[in-house]
Write a protein that binds this DNA or RNA. Structure first.
Lengths: 155, 155
DNA sequence: CCATATATTATGTATATGCATGTATAATGG
DNA sequence: CCATTATACATGCATATACATAATATATGG
């Protein structure tokens, strides 16, 4: 067995168990179902999730929003742009600290979220049904653990 | 309790259990750990996963690669571009069907994959260790189920 | 054999994501 | 009080992702 074959076999095993690959594949598959069902809202599932978090905690800082979304703050800076343009969230400077931008859900955003919730429920139910309750009950807590991984300590 | 409050509470419950939101958050967190550890390879984890799949199945069609990655074929059309430019995979037309483009791992790509595998093992071990074996053993099969969701039947 | 339908990949446009870096503001040390 | 440092957000660049649509090639029905 030469190097070529050896690498092939190691790589073949790796791809079957890679936690990153599987997490991303599953994420894409679930996102597709949600996005298709939520398409009539004119919003992507990512955007609806963002509105949900802002709804629960507004007004909140860009950095805190990034933490809640387990995302880079530079990503939030950009993902909120189309939502601001659509008028669903608004931004205003913090009087106490002018570096800080406070994000708030607008009435229009709240209305959009309200309209989206029934379709969200449809998507959630459909995915849950197709996965089966057993899978869902193991998946959710495991995903929550994974989301709390935080930065790696590369030693 | 007015509509405002009602929506807030429903949305607050939804965001806690949303399978799409949790899957995406977990995917981002896991990806960050892998990408940080794999940074010395000059490749992203997504690209290494793609090389692994091509390694296991090359030569293969763009469409078949998309199926294996649970991704849109238009996404594959673009994600392979930097890998072709780097010389890690090559493309050639299928003689039997000139619509088809066959993707192959190059020697250079195989070498890059071989170099990446030890770091991949580090990332996989570190994530597995931090999640705990119990979580990993429930997570992997659940993610595999989720990745097989396929398109939704919107009724 | 040709017209139409179907299949395969690419491109236009838009959002999603993160690193390196830049800019403005606040905090801190001397 | 000022110089340095740290924090918060934005921007440049690159990859990731998908829908609508286009371009090309095959398949199929008459």
């Amino acid at each position: 067995m030469d190097d070529r074959q050896l690498t092939s076999e190691l790589a073949a095993q790796a791809v079957e168990v890679c936690l990153c690959f599987h997490a991303r594949k599953a994420s894409r598959a679930i996102t597709q179902v949600f996005d298709h069902i939520l398409a009539p809202t004119g919003l992507r599932t990512t955007q609806i999730s963002l509105l949900m978090v802002v709804n629960a905690r507004s007004p909140l800082r860009v950095g805190d929003l990034a933490d809640a979304l387990v995302t880079d703050s530079t990503t939030v800076s950009r993902t909120i742009k189309p939502l601001i343009k659509s008028g669903f969230i608004s931004e205003m400077p913090d009087k106490q600290d002018r570096r800080v931008k406070l994000i708030t859900l607008t009435d229009s955003g709240r209305a959009a979220l309200e309209r989206a919730l029934p379709l969200w429920q449809t998507a959630q139910s459909q995915v849950a049904k197709r996965l089966g309750s057993g899978v869902v009950q193991t998946l959710l807590p495991a995903l929550e653990s994974a989301a709390q991984l935080g930065p790696s300590d590369i030693v």
